[in-house]
Design a protein around this nucleic acid. Sequence first.
RNA 1: GCCGGGUUAGCUCAGUGGUAGAGCAACGCACUUGUAAUGCGUAGGUCGUGGGUUCAAUCCCCACACCCGGCUCCA
Length: 661
Amino acid sequence: MSEISVLLPDGSSRALPVGSSIADLAASIGSRLAKAAVAGTVNGAEVDLTVPLSDGATVSIITADSDAGRHVLRHSTAHVLAQAVLQLFDGAHFTIGPAIEDGFYYDFALPDNKTFSDDDLASIEKRMREIMKANQPFTRSEVSVKEALAVFATQPYKCEIIERVTSGSADGSDVGEVGSADSVSLYRNSESFVDLCRGPHVPSTSRLGHFSLMKVAGAYWRGNEKGPMLQRIYGTAWESDTALKEHLHRLEEATKRDHRRLANELDLLSFPTELGGGLAVWHPKGAIVRKLMEDYSRQRHQDGDYQFVYTPHLANANLFAKSGHLDFYADGMYPPMEMDNGTYYMKPMNCPMHCLIFDSRQRSYRELPLRLFELGNVYRYERAGTLHGLLRIRGFTQDDSHIYCTEEQMADEISSLLDFIMSVLRRFGFNDFEFNLSTRDPEKSVGSDEIWGKATEALREALDRHGVEYKIKEGDAAFYGPKIDIDVRDAIGRKWQLSTIQCDFNLPERFELEYVGSDGARHRPIMLHRALFGSIERFFGVLIEHYAGAFPSWLSPEQVRVLPVALAHDEYATSVVAQLKKAGFRVDIDHADEQLGKRIRNAKTSKVPYVLVVGDDDVAHQSVGVNPRGGEVERDVSVVDFIARLAVEISEGQLGDIDVS
RNA sequence: GCCGGGUUAGCUCAGUGGUAGAGCAACGCACUUGUAAUGCGUAGGUCGUGGGUUCAAUCCCCACACCCGGCUCCA
């Protein structure tokens, strides 16, 4: 047989000479495809382009501009990074270097715990480009464990990986490096550089080059904070210079949206050093937005048959001992205050207090589901290195509710919660949701398997009934029960975890909560913890980034700014302001003591939704010139019309019908 | 908490072993302008805090606080 036949993804088959590789296949189809090909799949398994094909194989070609192709490029670039570092830093040990979203990293241990500087990054990148120019092949081989250990005799981390794989204690990251336990696969670029790897890789280093080293950071070996600290170099790599530039541009755009920067520029809030880390003060403009968020949340909860409660910021330690939080999170709580009559803690959560409200009198099944809601201020001593603007903060406000219900009500309640959450989030411009179901971590949890099983099933049932797709996060649950987390995508496609629904059979047990059923007997309720915003602070931070600081007019601290063209128009401008204020708008005037252009610019950089310019014509016609944020200037709009239009825009933003799907 | 980098005027940032500078903002004066930066002038800083080295420290060293990029953690 001088020919083989392979099956392509479109169902067609193609004849090739015996011994042909995927590269040959690509070339036989077209020169552009051959140029774009970086790897392939044979019968579903990813392989190098150079692998000879067998008769009857199902083959597809992985091109550089696909997710799988970029993954190959990035992983191959990581190998080049490792080679450059080993060449430039005598005695460096290399560990693992996977492809990640948008790029890759590689972890190293330098002799004497040395670290990389920014200058080092520049020289490493230069060396990498030399290696790419040298057109080194990626040559795969499979060797025995013994041979592999000999190859990496001077590389302790590589030996550790090989040994772990062969002893059967490998985890996912190891398999990514090596493959299987029977033999060890290696990729060699040159006499002096070889790395453990499962592959596939590009055929040669010259196929790489659209990359940039981004930053150096510390990282623990195998993610273990008790283990050695390695030096991680992050890079990004793409299929073309255009794609690389676009990525760098996206990063710049994301930086412009940084909520910490915008919160400062727009005078929304600040983190005074004098307060201590992770604690914010809200300035008047930020407070306006916050209040509107809270008002909207309260209105929706009122409509949703929630009952509002208030609880104190402090509690006796006994309460948190009873709830179990002290056992699990004492390190994450502000330190205890010793008082004459006991030990007190700042509250890190509201649930135990809501349980006390439930327990304050006898409850009937007729009251269930009982939904207690509070914008509750909590304090958590987040570790110093973890603080991040509003997204990770030590004092914050949860839009927290605890719902007490019967086992039978649980799935319905969760299901309607999913609707409620999406409906509220849509009002803030989020339309793209992802669901995650987090299951028990046996090491960090309380309660019986039976209870956990029931709770997890209830969440799963609600998700299934809703017909939404969801991912399972194994072992990611809270200590008291499984949860559904809801992620949203923002205006530029970034993912944020916001809402959570947590199922809890344990706190009712610990607090011995009961209700009297229709049968006259006492029963234990089930408790659902849920938050929509998560924390007001965090949600506000995400909103700033989502809107890039340009809040929709219903949320804008300043909705309208009126600019008189000249001093002579000041009186008229003032009357326009008065009319707008009377209509309930948040409006300011910027008097004519600067050039109009300058004042327009100021209003634009403050991201005010509407700038109204008033001059001679407007005085004559009782009109305004409307300059909307991101739109075209419209002259000679009557004040009455403008008020009517803005009123519609704002009321639709606040109260309009909400499309829940 | 760990690794690395940082902290200079309200903001963004230069800079130096001999106690500091720009742009914007603020304030004043002139200009009175029809849609994204008018001109001139004034004022503003014990250079994060506390120690140390030095004749002399904003600069070098140490500690602490806070911030940034990651890691780890996240009820």
